[in-house]
Design a protein around this nucleic acid. Structure first.
Lengths: 113, 113
DNA sequence: TCTATATTCATCTAAATGGTTGAATATCCC
DNA sequence: GGGATATTCAACCATTTAGATGAATATAGA
């Protein structure tokens, strides 16, 4: 149950539908910034900022070829985020299991608040 | 691959170490707002706001007994977040599997940039 | 009833976020 | 070189966020 360094950036990056949409696009294949921006009713500059915040979170990598910037997914930080969530799932499972036991045998469980 | 309604709120709530810390506390057992606030060098009012944002995201539930507010974890939205991440993992696996295949048999894969 | 306790509410401030527009940069191609 | 294309940069604005403080609310308990 470690605290990961860039988890703030990763989760905040995921907290926006535009950026999640971009990740969805990138899940299929590499895209240019222009392609990523295309589905959204917003200026290219704004979309470009979203890409940058995905990049800062480490969720995507960029390769510049000529005037075109190619963006591809970097799954590692998302795996970290998932790992964090999984840690908690484990704890909830324990909690739920204990609750279940309590419901089945109400007598042999101590205290509680 | 659905888009979930409150995913924005959930991910943004997770994007803050204080709130993640509170969830960590709550993973063990129910806590009062005061207990949740205690570990942090910040006013109770500020901590209370963090609790509220966890509540708005649906990540915790609150029960008021007398003057004390008891807060407990609500795992469902976190499960949703995890589900979202898992969808992507699936896609990355496919992507990685294809890349692997490509590396093994460079000839029989079309196009790709 | 009076006082202490638990918590929120209201207001304020500073910084971050998400968007805009217009200019700058770099590349491609005729 | 010069125009079109791809993208970022800079400045600006509105909204949200994270914090603080002081007052308000409600309950507990002597």
């Amino acid at each position: 149950m470690v605290e990961y360094p860039k988890l703030d950036l990763v989760f905040r990056a995921l907290g926006d539908a535009t950026r999640r949409g971009m990740l969805k696009q990138l899940a299929a294949r590499e895209r240019t910034v222009g392609e990523l921006a295309e589905p959204y009713r917003m200026s290219l500059a704004s979309a470009s900022k979203h890409v940058k915040s995905l990049e800062r979170a480490g969720l995507v990598r960029r390769t510049v070829r000529g005037r075109t910037h190619f963006v591809r997914l970097n799954p590692q930080p998302l795996a970290k985020a998932d790992e964090w969530l999984r840690d908690y799932e484990r704890l909830w499972d324990i909690r739920l299991a204990r609750l279940e036991a309590l419901l089945r045998h109400p007598d042999n469980e101590g205290s509680g608040r």
